[in-house]
Amino acid sequence: MAMALDEKFFEKFGIEYAPNEIIFCEFEPGNEFYFIQSGRVRIVKLIQNREKNLTVMTEGDVLGEMAILEEQPRSATAIAMDHVKLLKFHRDNFDALISGNPQLAYKLLVIFSKRIYEAKRRLMILLLEEPQLKVMDVLVMLVEQDPHLDMQNVVSLQVTAQDVARWAGITEDETQKELTHLSRLDKIELFGDRIVVKKIREFQRLVASKRKSMYQ
């Protein structure tokens, strides 16, 4: 859903990218944030010297919004997938921008709500002590975030050990060790590109009770 904005607004803040053009690059200083008006943008990151696709952003999404909050280098690279139209705003114009455009402000409110939760949820995983619990909680988080998956059922997650390691904040070797252990206990089944969890509810309960006792 494109923002209902007049032509003048696009003239002033609009910017277009050709397919395969970089919008911003990982580690580049970030001072601007963008609203996608049309087209698709691929978000990638170099992990262990390989380009890894993180997500695809489309019309209505916001890019680089962390630049509003802090002066930090970009944490990922954004590349146009097709002909992309964006609105580009500098951090310094933020206050003026949202005063005049409550709709943009509302959109950011929704996005920040999601980001706060995602960041909190990841932090909850990182604060667990044992690597096995971290790995279990990553799997629980992935099920929670997928509206098509049900805690009551056997679930199949499209993740690799490398993905899990990244979320859990532990090494890939350590992650592999824990996954293998869980699979020997017949709690999960490991495939090249996915992990099948037999009783995710059990993981959820275990993590919740450990988390509770951690504080006591």
Binding site: V44, R50, E51, K52, N53, L54, T55, V56, E118, M141, L142, E144, Q145, D146, Q158, V159, T160, D163, R166, W167, D193
Partner: peptide
């Protein structure tokens, strides 16, 4: 070498 197909990872 792009790792395709893992975009859905991590929710």
């Amino acid at each position: 070498h792009t790792d395709q197909g893992t975009g859905g990872a991590g929710g």
